[in-house]
């Protein structure tokens, strides 16, 4: 599975277009992490717990998108975009979407 955020894959040609695939996830850290983060809000600096959270959500969203692409018989996803939103304090929503294609 080739995943890229440009429209074409160098050296390969798209032979079939299968439409948009997407994956999303909403994750939260346990309350302990939230408390630690509010302490960090006094001193400033990186919130490692939330960085981890963001990274995990990104991987999860990508994974779901890839699974969906595989299910419809694609071997590549091009033009991938990430989008984030916050629906609740302490929770992260990450949304990954792209175009599933068959390349040769």
């Amino acid at each position: 599975m080739i995943v890229t955020n440009i429209e074409v894959i160098p050296g390969k040609t798209v032979i079939k277009h299968l439409g948009i695939v997407n994956g999303n996830t909403v994750r939260a850290k346990h309350a302990g992490r939230d408390i630690m983060a509010s302490f960090k809000n006094i001193f400033g600096g990186e919130l490692k717990g939330y960085t981890e959270l963001l990274q995990e959500s990104r991987e999860e969203a990508l994974q779901r998108m890839i699974e969906q692409a595989q299910a419809i018989g694609a071997n590549a996803v091009v033009n991938v975009r990430f989008s984030t939103s916050s629906i609740a304090a302490g929770a992260a929503e990450l949304f990954a979407y792209g175009t599933a294609v068959v390349v040769e």
Partner: peptide, 21 residues
């Protein structure tokens, strides 16, 4: 020239301190 491509990403969460806020 010939090359492979792959998606790469990096993320970070940074907080502001009390004084600056």
């Amino acid at each position: 020239g010939p090359a492979d491509t792959t998606l790469v990403a990096g993320s970070v969460v940074v907080s502001i301190d009390y004084f600056k806020r």
